[in-house]
Amino acid sequence: MKIVQIGTGGWGKNHTRILSQLGVLSAVCDTNAERSKEYGEKYSVKHYNSLEDLIKFEEFDGAFVVTPTSTHTEIATKLLEAKKHVFVEKPMTYKSEDGQKIAELAKKNNLVLTCGYIERFNPAVDNVKKFVKEKKYGELVMLEFHRENRMPLHIKDVGIIYDTSVHDIDTANWLFDDMPQVVFARSGRINHEHEDFASIMLGYKNDKVAIISSNWITPKRVRTFTAVCTDAIITSDFISQEIKIEKKEETEIPRSDKQEPLLLEIQSFLGAIEGKNNLIVSSQQAVNVTKIAEAALLSSQKGIPIYLDLK
């Protein structure tokens, strides 16, 4: 299998490393010619600074799009038109209608199109998903997420809802196995051009709820979530991947091996290209996350709940 990567800055360097380790990286492309050359030489693969040239001269099966959000639609469209499988870093597109268009194009051309909602591949989330599915600690009633840190330097074109809160929106949908019916949010700006703190409440059927708190203000890196079930409270850390289960009389700390979520996510996409029934984020699920993020921004601006009807 041959895989190319478009965009090698910020978070993208991790994809290049893993794709090279897996022996599937065949070329890199970046509008920054210097960086493209640097990564091409580092991983002994061809390098391009034009997407058109990459598509024209390179034989490949799939592509990773790790570029600013505003460029995702155009790049993904060209790749899908060239009949290539595509992995787009989150969020899939800036506007949900653009996401819908590329999802339909992928379906029409019978191609895999997925989006990088990496926390689904985090063992911390995977284990909680298993508990919820088995109803090991009763019914899942409420989720609460905290994601805090200074703003990453490579984020230039979106605020915290599109860059950060989307991870927890997708994780909440995944753990509840449902889409929210209502969104209420408050957000604001302190240090940055776009919103840099946000609190989002997602209301699901049967009064189930997810509360998502994100900020780029506080200096300490926090990445935690709590699942409130009818028989226990499960607390988990995305970074350490540790889980703590508090029941009425006792506390359990299950042991599991730490794994790199990005490696698992990339392997899953490669498996999907090969036709394996792997877990991937479907393009429609990714479009829905963007719709929810749009609703959160609108709710915050208008100060009202936004009601949704998602597929």
Rank of each mutant, 00 (worst) to 15 (best):
L143P: 09
V128I: 15
K133P: 01
F176V: 01
S187A: 12
E134P: 12
F131L: 05
W216K: 01
S213L: 10
D196N: 03
I155N: 07
H167R: 00
G159W: 01
L153H: 15
K133T: 11
D196H: 03
D207G: 13
R150F: 11
A210R: 01
S214K: 11
V141F: 07
I190C: 14
T164D: 08
M201K: 14
H167K: 06
D178P: 06
W216I: 02
E148F: 14
V183L: 01
S187I: 05
T224L: 05
D168G: 11
M179C: 10
I190H: 14
A172S: 15
H194M: 11
F184A: 07
S187H: 04
Y137H: 07
Y204W: 01
P219N: 03
V141T: 02
L202N: 00
S214T: 15
R186T: 11
P152Q: 03
K130Y: 04
Y137K: 04
V209S: 10
L202I: 03
Y137G: 02
H194W: 13
V158M: 03
F184Q: 05
S165F: 00
K205R: 00
G159T: 03
S165H: 01
D207I: 05
L143W: 02
G159Q: 08
Y162I: 00
S213V: 08
G203V: 01
H146R: 04
M142Y: 14
E193H: 10
P219S: 02
H154M: 08
D168R: 01
V209P: 12
Y162R: 10
H194I: 01
I161E: 11
R189E: 02
F225V: 00
N191K: 11
E139C: 00
F131W: 06
